[in-house]
């Protein structure tokens, strides 16, 4: 019973739910498609060897432009992943905050303190130094 009802409400166009989001998404994809089709249709590409060279201020490019990302990037990306997952915990706590009491606050404070300490640890270890010689 409940399932049919939720299905009915999900398929209700008056309801601002997932269905309208899907329709909106489809509409956007269609608009993008029309724009790109129009531009491709109005301007057939004219190939020329010089036009296809990647722009490097007039210097003929040498080699591929697919070099590796710098290493500190991976480090910071890993921190980002870890901290972002922790931010998700904080979010789940925050949304039910009104129903929690001091206990909840103490628990999240402990959690955030641990987070903070790990940030300080990473900082002290030099994990946040992007370049070898930062200005500050």
């Amino acid at each position: 019973m409940e399932i049919t009802q939720s299905a009915a409400s999900a398929l209700n166009f008056w309801e601002p739910g997932a269905l309208s989001l899907a329709v909106y998404g489809a509409l956007l994809v269609a608009v993008m498609g029309v724009i790109l089709f129009l531009s491709a249709w109005l301007n057939p590409t004219k190939k020329s060897p010089n036009k296809d060279i990647p722009y490097e201020c007039g210097i003929t490019p040498t080699g591929q432009a697919r070099f590796q990302y710098p290493t500190p990037f991976y480090l910071v990306a890993a921190f980002f992943l870890i901290f972002d997952v922790e931010a998700v915990y904080v979010f789940t706590w925050a949304v039910s905050f009104t129903r929690l009491t001091w206990t909840g606050w103490l628990q999240i404070s402990f959690f955030i303190a641990v987070l903070f300490l790990s940030l300080v640890y990473v900082w002290r270890k030099g994990g946040l130094e992007w370049s070898a010689n930062p200005m500050r």
Partner: peptide, 17 residues
């Protein structure tokens, strides 16, 4: 496949994180 573009992309990703 342009070096300028790749640098911009790296910076964009680095900023995002």
């Amino acid at each position: 496949n342009s070096k300028f573009s790749l640098l911009g992309a790296i910076r964009g990703a680095a900023m995002m994180i």
